[in-house]
Simulated scan of single mutants.
Amino acid sequence: MLKKYIGPICLASAATIWGGMYVVSKVVLTVIPPLELVWLRYIVALITLIIMSAVTHQSWHIQKRHIPLILAVGVIGYVISIWSQFVGTKLSSAQTGAMITSATPAFMVIFARLLLKEKITLRKGLSTSLASIGVLCIVGIGNIEKSYQLGGIVLGIAALSWALMSVLVKRIPSSYSQLVITTYAIFAAIVIITPFVVSQIDMTHIRAIFQPTIGIGVLYLGIVSTAIAFFLWNKGLQMVDASRGGLYFFFQPIAGTLLGWFILEEHVGITFWLGSILIFSGVLLAVKED
């Protein structure tokens, strides 16, 4: 009986952690550029995951035919999506980042149909439309700064790529340890990002890590928001259908908005709330059980 709640608990926990991630990112990004922050975050996460895998005695064996799939998870989810999240958050706000990326479940419906052959119902099609209109409301309507509009567009890319990655995770055999899968995918992301980071690394940014606030922020992003949250999300997806799994993204905008308002004193306008209502409505339609 208890087993059926493990997947939902993992997904809800991961989404809640990511909601707080946008607030922490907003602070750390004032000192460290997005790409360098992604790289630092993954270095910390990789060390954490290796220790966790070693302590729990996980098997590192992966069949060759599944390697391209794991690489795709690393590139699409851990490079494109995460980098887009950081860039979009820097250009906009913590609430905007959390809210726009909450459209991910609706996008998962489309990818689940294409890759997993899940049936697209009228309700699922309507949900995708509502979520898309909601994103457009947040990004392109109202008297908001151009940087916020651009940030919203980049965050939309983050939502799309994370949705694709989440569906790809469902195609990886559940017999593999999700600790090991997450470790390999993050290692692939580090290999891709490192050449770009090395060419633009700045000692000022490295010294900033030793500032208490920035250092704790980097550790939180690496250990909690990456190593632990990625593992929880992948584990939860193994145990819950792709469409219903998206339901737990509701926890992300709730946490992001509350923390952004409480800690960063961010304010939102009417178009933000209109877009938020549309996104919530779309996601609810997409994931609600028959």
Rank of each mutant, 00 (worst) to 15 (best):
195 P>W: 06
131 A>K: 00
237 L>I: 13
39 W>G: 04
53 S>N: 12
164 L>P: 01
58 Q>V: 12
241 D>H: 09
55 V>G: 04
281 S>L: 12
186 I>D: 02
38 V>S: 10
133 I>P: 06
214 I>K: 00
75 V>G: 03
98 A>C: 07
86 F>G: 00
154 V>H: 06
76 I>S: 02
188 A>P: 07
281 S>K: 08
270 I>F: 11
178 Q>G: 15
199 S>V: 10
6 I>F: 05
163 A>R: 01
191 V>N: 08
90 K>Q: 09
84 S>K: 05
111 F>L: 09
42 Y>E: 05
177 S>F: 03
264 L>A: 07
224 V>T: 10
39 W>F: 13
55 V>R: 14
90 K>W: 09
228 I>T: 12
155 L>I: 02
234 N>R: 05
226 T>P: 15
187 F>W: 07
123 R>I: 11
191 V>F: 10
150 L>N: 12
196 F>C: 03
138 I>C: 01
75 V>C: 11
188 A>D: 09
35 L>F: 13
3 K>A: 10
101 T>E: 12
16 T>I: 06
27 V>F: 04
19 G>N: 00
280 F>C: 13
247 L>R: 15
33 P>N: 01
185 A>R: 14
246 G>C: 11
99 M>V: 15
208 A>F: 02
181 I>N: 03
71 L>V: 15
250 F>Q: 14
216 I>P: 01
19 G>V: 00
